[in-house]
Amino acid sequence: MDQALFQYLLRMGDTSLILSHRLSELTGHGPALEEDLAMTNVALDLLGQSRLWLTLAGEVEGNSRDEDQLAYLRDAPEFRNYLLAERPNTHYGSVIARQFFFDVWHYFLLKELCSSSDERVAAIAEKSIKEVTYHVRRSSDILVRLGDGTAESHARMQDSVNDAWRFVGELFLDDEITEALAERKVAPLHSQLWPAWLDHVSTTLQESTVALPNPDDAHHRAHRGGVTGRHTEALGYILAEMQHLQRAYPGAVW
């Protein structure tokens, strides 16, 4: 089994799955009808992408685990999502900051994955990036509107950006998995995505009048570990809700 590829596919699938679940928690709770629609639609896109990644992960693993078994029957330490995805929804500014940082990273990563030497990976990336381009344009747009809005929305947006900032460094870390895949040109080194990411983020923040946090503060060692299964307590609560049905009624289907 291609262990590095399997782990990488779990990172992609789990990150989309967990963020999708976070966004879906806002269904019926959005601050405005338009935002409610947007969050649920973005959640739906990410869920669809997650299914593609996890299905492929199951095939690569070769243990006949399908997307459902991977999503519903693993415990928190087996999840490989980035910590940013599991950050809780507090007020809407934090939802947008989290989404904006993720979307920009997701866009630049998928752009590289479109030319992956593994054609199955390239096909999923090619499919996903069209949706993600729309996501990143929208979250950039909302970030500017909130940051450059009222004194209250500006202050909240600044707080949210500062808070989410601690968790972005992990997105750009390389380890033996990304290095092995980069050598085979299956995936890019994540550290190479940082300059383009920072460029778009700082341009957008400038337009939003929100101050860019110190880039060094994004790379604190305390705020990493998601992709190796070391999660914050937030993930357990997500899984408790997401997996309840399959845990209580094993094998239940529609």
Binding site: V104, Y107, K111, T133, Y134, E207
Partner: peptide, 12 residues
């Protein structure tokens, strides 16, 4: 034209 994925400039 389909969505242009070559750029992420805002205000699509």
């Amino acid at each position: 034209k389909a969505i242009n994925i070559s750029g992420i400039t805002r205000r699509a």
